[in-house]
């Protein structure tokens, strides 16, 4: 079912990683990804992997959830591997058949690229699985708030983002429901050619759009009746504050970069 999509899903918990300030996690993710692109060679990669696994273990994310999240990008990883294997020409030829040449260098690059890609994606899971969307946008808003000085509508962007994030599961649920209802009347979304399937989607889209507009309208009314008038002078119920663990975590981030530089 559509519901099983986990990309960007939050798993509530109470671990050190869950408790970190969202800004810390955002910064750490950027730091980690930068380090990942700086890393060269086997030792550095192993180190990065070890860091990732440690973080995953601390945050108690189940391996199952990670694999499910990786599924949608599996094809991209495969393509990367294949391209690298066949199109990188190195010195040591391992296998040759007519125009097909596989070299050791190609193989190694393929492995490195695939693992880098996977580690990159998994590190973003670490953020989205342990941070609720609301906290995340809150963190983003705070981090970008200096940009308000140059008249960028940071608050509005953050609000739009949190509403969008909030609506995704609702819309998926709604789609599921409408699909079930149309299936009950014999609609068939699974078989047939492209044209037939495209046609089958129409009974889905119309009610879905209508309900999305209705929801948007209701939400706007609800916000207005609670006197929402933009970010001006708006205070927070939960004010984000860096705790000592956040400083430790940031220090840990700096250490990662240093270690990678050394290992290179």
């Amino acid at each position: 079912m559509l519901k099983d999509i986990t990309l960007g899903q939050f798993f509530p918990g109470d671990t050190l990683v869950h408790r970190l300030d969202p800004r810390t996690k955002l910064i750490l993710m950027v730091v980690y990804i930068t380090a990942l692109f700086m890393a060269k060679g086997f030792p550095a990669y192993t180190f990065m992997l070890a860091v990732l696994i440690t973080c995953l273990a601390v945050s108690r994310i189940k391996p199952k959830a990670i694999f499910r999240g990786l599924k949608p990008i599996f094809i991209i990883i495969c393509i990367t591997v294949i391209l690298n294997i066949f199109f990188i020409r190195g010195e040591t030829v391992l296998f040759q058949y007519r125009a097909i040449v596989i070299t050791q260098e190609g193989l190694i690059t393929a492995v490195f690229m695939a693992s880098r890609l996977m580690m990159l994606i998994i590190s973003t899971f670490l953020l989205t699985y342990t941070t609720s969307p609301i906290t995340l946008t809150d963190g983003l808003e705070r981090m970008l708030s200096p940009l308000k000085k140059i008249k960028l509508p940071v608050h509005e962007f953050a609000m739009m983002m949190s509403i969008a994030l909030r609506m995704i599961p609702t819309l998926i649920e709604e789609t599921d429901k409408i699909m079930s209802a149309q299936k009950s009347r014999g609609a068939d979304f699974e078989t047939g050619g492209l044209l037939k399937r495209a046609k089958a989607v129409l009974p889905l889209l119309i009610p879905l759009f209508i309900s999305a507009f209705r929801r948007a309208d209701e939400l706007a009314t609800a916000m207005e009746s609670r006197c929402y008038h933009g970010g001006e002078g708006r205070t927070k119920m939960k004010i984000l504050r860096f705790a000592s663990r956040d400083f430790v975590a940031l220090l840990f981030g700096a250490c990662i970069v240093a270690a990678v530089v050394l290992l290179n």
Binding site: K177, A181, Q182, R185, G186, D188, L202, P203, I206, P207
Partner: peptide, 24 residues
Amino acid sequence: FQYPEYQLFESTVFDDIAFGPKNM
């Protein structure tokens, strides 16, 4: 379904009711 009215989609009532029989 619960609240089935949210699942109507055709341009006329006739076509909407006919959706099931057509699929048959």
